[in-house]
Structures are given as structure tokens and as C-alpha cells.
Amino acid sequence: MNNVLKFKNKKNTVAAQDEIYNFAYLDENTKRMIRRALIKALCIPGYQVPFSSREMPMPYGWGTGGVQVTSSCLTTDDVIKVIDQGADDTTNAVSIRNFFKKTANIKTTEKTSQASIIQTRHRIPEEKLKEKQILVYQVPIPEPLAFLEPRYQETKKMHALSEYGIMHVKLYEDITKNGHIETAYAYPVKTNDRYIMDPSPIPKFDNPKMNNNPAIQLFGAGREQRIYAIPPYTEVTSLDFEDYPFDPSKAPHKCSICGSNESFLDEIITDDDGNRSFICSDTNYCNQRMENN
């Protein structure tokens, strides 16, 4: 928690940063507002806190929620890592990393273990996170009940009163249609045995990593203007049925670069004949394994 709480008294102006921006782009009032939302979110794990999302110099859907959360958490000492679907080198990840380099002049890294803040889209790094690290998720649709109950006021009530029968209706339909729970991404979880939460579109393979994680996990949805969080060491369980238990397993292949059979893999087509191979989606994990071998 230290990381989150310590900004309050810190002056965030640094000579070397681009002078036309406030530190990390957002003005201090906005950051304060977002931090208040973050602290509330941490106090009520899984509960969606509304916040007033700012215009960012990138379109919605490009991580504006995550960027605002990250911006509000950053201190001059932070080291940031940005990944998109596990990779540090995709356009999206690179441009967000550059954004913070330019507006906050802070150190960046691709190494999971060296980052103090990791902003991510659709993955949790393979390497175990540690205390005092912050994982910031970019979230497109924060409301897990939205698919069956479009009225916001009603979903709010359903959360307040733990009326969650409907979530299992979705899983029921899934099993009925497919013979098993087909949902593979954004698999709903219950946080701290209370709020049902959308984990953002991470693969269900990553769900167990949220449970009892030493790091702080923050979720930001820019267009929907919601922030939610999982404090360190919080129980996070994936919804299921007794006779159809949650199964986080992934495709039974090995990474064709590093040989790992424990990491989440991307499938790639290797030639015009449609031959396929599998490689780690977490590029840093894959690279580290290669370096260590």
C-alpha cells in the first residue's frame, strides 16, 4: 500500500521532464480525485468506484483508464513496464511507454521483476509479482453483470445485495451449449468473497494469479469511468459449478522458442502452408528463459 499512499506529500515536478506537461500528464487535482477513487477501491475489493474520466491524448479503447490510473500512481522513483497481450514491443505498449517517458521522464523496463508499476492489457505477467509492485489493468467493460442487465442502477443494486444468481445463468448457458464452460477470457471472479468482478479480458489461465497476489492490482475503465482494485493478498475465486469446476488450463503445447510448457502461448502461423507454432505471449518471460539457458 505504501506506494499508493506516499504520493500525497510528494512534489512531482522534475526539471528534466517536458515542461509543457504536468508530471505524468494529468493535473494534480485530477490525480488527487483518482487516488481517492483508488483508495476507496482498495478498501472495498472488487467494488466499482465511479470517477470522472479525463480526455487523454489517445482514443478510448487504447487504455485511457489504465493510463489515468498509472499516471495517478507514478512517482519520480518509479520504474514502469507496459505490456499489451504480454508483449513489451507492440505498438500500443510502446506508445504508452513513450507517453510516460515524455510526460514523467521516468525509467522504463521490460523486466517484470524490475518494474514498480506494470500497466497491462489482457495479460498478467508469468513471473510472480512481489509486494510493493502495482499491476494496472486496462479495462474495456468493467460491469460483469452488464451482458444480462443493461440498467446501471439495477446492477448497482444487484452488487449491493449480492444478487448474483444471474452470473451462474451465464455459465449454465455456456455448459448447456458447449458441454463445458466455454468462457476463456474475462472469466468472472468473486473478490474477497463479496463482489463479483470482471478481471478484464485476460485469459482464464491468468485468473489464479490474481488470487492472494502480493502486488496491488488496479483496474481502470476510461470510457465507462470506473476504477476497481484488489489489495495484496486478497482471495480471488473464479465462478464455477461443483461438477464443472473452474479449469484454468491452456493449450497443451510448448513454447517453440524457450520450450516452456507452463506459460500462456500465442498461436502463430509460420508459413503459407498454414503451419502453426506456439510461443510465449509474455515476451519478457520468454527472453529471460533464453538468457538464463
Binding site: Y164, G165, I166, V169, I175, T176, D243, Y244
Partner: peptide
Amino acid sequence: SAGGNISERLMSIGQRNY
């Protein structure tokens, strides 16, 4: 589905066996 409709109240009172 029809079955899903019937299932909702069951699951809302905590039944978890498909």
C-alpha cells in the same frame, strides 16, 4: 434458454451443481 430461465432462482439461492 428455457432451462436457463428456470435455473436462475435456483442459483440465486446458492445451488452450484449443474
